[in-house]
Design a protein around this nucleic acid. Structure first.
Lengths: 329, 329
DNA sequence: AAATTACTTGCAAACGTTTTCGTTTTGTGC
DNA sequence: GCACAAAACGAAAACGTTTGCAAGTAATTT
C-alpha cells in the first residue's frame, strides 16, 4: 500500500542501503545518486516507516507526557515547555491523560516497555515510590510538578514548602494573624510541603497554629466551596485564607458573592499556581506563580541529556517561584 | 536488553510461533504448553514489542488527537469522550498539541504516514480543505468540533448556526432588541456559522441588523476586553451581547467590574461552550453547552467502525446542543 | 607503475513480531 | 487395523528499516 524504501531504490536505480544513507546522512553517497534518490522520494511521496526504523534502531524519538487531566491551563504551560525542549532535540512530544487512575498510568507507561516511546514524564502520579523505582530502573522516566518522597527518579518541581512559606509570610505582612489553610488530604506531597511551609511561617511569626484553621479537602473547586462553608461558620473565623490552589481560592470568592446577600463572611484569599482564571475573575487572585514553562523545559532537557550522556545528574531540581499580587489579598 | 519472545519460547520449551499464538489467542495450543508459556512470560516479565508487532500487522492500535491548545477545559471533555470510546475498542489515545501552527499539525499528521498511529482526529485546524482532502484520501482522518467547508472528511460538530440562533432567540425573548455580537474574524467556520445564526434570529424577530453591533476579534479573552471598550463607547450601545465563546463573555463581565467605579456600561451577556469557568465566576454565564463528551465519543466510534467495515457512513454528523441559563442574561 | 587512501556502493543480517504452510501427533469411526 | 479429520506445533518468510562488512572504483601518494 504505502510506498517503501525498496520502491524508491528501484526508481533511483540504487540499493535500499543507499537510500537509507541519504535519508540519514550517515556516510558518503555520490551527489548524482543522492539527487536521483531525492527526486524519487519526492515523486513517489515516500515517507519512512517509523516502525521499521524504530525496530532497527530501538528508538522512536517520541517522548510521552502523562497528565492527570487535560484542560488545566497550568499543565498546558508545562507542556509547552516540554514541547519546545523536545523539538529542539529532534523529539516529538505526545500526551496521555491518566484521569488520576493508576491503571491508566500503567497502561500509558507500558508504552515504554513496548518501545513505542523513548522516555516518559509523569506530571503527578498516584503510584507508589516502589513501583516508580522499578520503572525508573528499567526505563527513562521523570517526574515534573510533583515530587514523590522515596522515589529515586529525576524530578523537577518548585520548592513547595518555601513557596508556601513566602505566601503565608506575605499574608502576615499584610497584618493578618488569623490565617486559614485549605489543603488536600491524601497522598499529594505538594500539599504536605505547602502545609509545612504554612506552619513554619506561622511559627516564625510567633503565631500559634490552630487546628480548626486547617481545612482538609482536595485540589478541586468543589473543595473550596466546602471550605468556605466551614470557615464561615466558625465562631472565631480567620480573616485570610491560604489555598493550595487557585481553583480553591476562586471557589471561596464565588461562595462569598453568592452568600453576600445573606451577610456572608468575607475572607482575604491567596492561591497557588497562577492559572489563567486567576487574572480573569474579580477580584484577581493574589497567588504563587510556578515557573510552569521552565519546569517542562528543564525536565525534558535533563531527560534527554541523561539519555545521551548516561550521566547521573542531580536527581531533584527545584526551580524558583514568584509571587503575583492582585486584589484578593 | 529487554526480554523478547525468543527467550520466553526457550524457557517454555516451545517455538516463538506458539508463544505468539497464546499471546493472540488465535489458534489451538495445548493447555499445558499455554501454561508453561504464561509462566515464562510472568517470570521473565515479558512485554511485547509494539514496533515488531506493528510492523508485522501494520497497525498499532493507537489513535492520535490533535488539539490546538491543552489547558482548555472544553477540549478535555472531548478528549475524555474520545478516550472512553477508544478504550472500549482496545485502542489507546495519545494527544498532540499543535499550538495553532500548521507546521506542527503537519508534523503530527506525519505520524499517520509513519504508521505510528492508525488514525487521527483534528480538533480544529488551520489547514486548507485541499490539504485535508489529500490526507483524508490516504489515511484515516476525522475532524471534531470544527467543520471545514469543502473538506470531504468525517466530521462531528454541534450545529453552530442553529445553536447561535437559539441563543440569540433566547436573548430576544428576554426582551432585548439591541443585541451585540462578539465574533472571530478570519477563517474559523464555527464563527461564521454562529454569526449566521445571529443574523437569522434577528431577522426572524424583525430586528434590523446593525453593523456597529458586531465586533470582530478572536476567540481569546483579550478580544473580549477590547469588545467591552468598543461597545461601552457607542452612542447607542446594545443592552445584551452574544459572545461566541465563554471566555469573551467572561472578559466583558470582568471589564465591567473594573470599569464600574467610573460608572461603566453594564451589558447582559451570553456565551458559548459552557466551559468550567462559566459556572465559577459571578455572575455565572448563560451559555450554549456543546455535548463535548459525546462529540469525542462519536467521532472515535465512527472512525473505528469505518476502519473495520470500510463503509462510507455519513460524512458530517451534527449533535444536539443545550442552553444553560445562569445569571449573566 | 605500484601502492595507498578516499569514496561509493551492494549484500545480507538484524531488530521482534505474526502468520502461512506443512508436518506430526492424537483421536474417532468403521 | 485403516482411513481421515482435528489438534498442536515448528520452520521460515514477511513487515521496513539500518548497518557492518566487503568489494569496487577513483584519486592521490610514493
Amino acid at each position: 500500500m504505502a510506498v517503501t524504501m525498496k520502491e524508491v531504490a528501484e526508481r533511483a536505480g540504487v540499493s535500499v542501503a543507499t537510500v537509507s544513507r541519504v535519508l540519514n546522512g550517515t556516510t558518503y553517497v555520490a551527489p548524482e545518486a543522492a539527487e536521483r534518490i531525492n527526486n524519487a522520494i519526492k515523486e513517489l511521496g515516500y515517507s519512512p516507516n517509523f516502525l521499521g526504523r524504530g525496530l532497527r534502531k530501538s528508538e522512536t524519538k517520541i517522548l510521552l507526557a502523562i497528565i492527570p487531566t487535560a484542560g488545566h491551563s497550568f499543565y498546558n504551560d508545562v507542556l509547552m515547555g516540554m514541547q519546545d525542549a523536545a523539538a529542539s532535540h529532534g523529539y516529538d512530544l505526545l500526551i496521555g491523560v491518566s484521569g488520576d487512575s493508576t491503571a491508566a498510568e500503567r497502561r500509558l507507561l507500558s508504552m515504554l516497555e513496548n518501545k513505542i516511546v523513548d522516555a516518559a514524564v509523569l506530571l503527578g502520579t498516584k503510584m507508589t515510590p516502589a513501583e516508580l523505582n522499578t520503572y525508573a530502573a528499567n526505563f527513562n522516566l521523570a517526574l515534573a510538578c510533583e515530587r514523590i518522597p522515596g522515589a529515586d527518579v529525576l524530578t523537577v518541581t518548585v520548592d513547595d514548602e518555601e513557596a508556601a512559606y513566602a505566601a503565608v509570610s506575605l499574608i502576615i505582612k499584610k497584618g493578618h494573624r488569623k490565617i486559614g489553610l485549605v489543603t488536600a488530604a491524601g497522598t499529594a506531597v505538594s500539599a504536605v510541603d505547602r502545609k509545612n511551609g504554612y506552619e513554619k511561617a506561622l511559627s516564625d511569626a510567633e503565631i500559634t497554629y490552630r487546628e480548626e484553621y486547617v481545612f482538609m479537602g482536595s485540589y478541586a473547586y468543589e473543595s473550596g466551596t466546602a471550605a468556605y462553608r466551614y470557615f464561615a461558620r466558625l465562631i472565631d473565623p480567620p480573616t485570610a485564607i491560604f489555598c493550595i490552589s487557585d481553583l480553591l481560592a476562586a471557589a471561596i470568592l464565588k461562595s462569598y458573592t453568592i452568600d453576600n446577600a445573606r451577610g456572608g463572611q468575607y475572607f482575604k484569599v491567596m492561591g497557588f499556581d497562577d492559572i489563567q482564571l486567576s487574572g480573569m475573575i474579580t477580584p484577581g487572585i493574589t497567588t504563587v506563580s510556578q515557573p510552569s514553562y521552565d519546569i517542562g523545559h528543564t525536565v525534558i532537557e535533563k531527560l534527554i541529556s541523561r539519555r545521551s550522556e548516561n550521566s547521573v545528574n542531580t536527581k531533584h531540581i527545584k526551580l524558583p517561584f514568584r509571587i503575583i499580587e492582585r486584589e484578593s489579598l
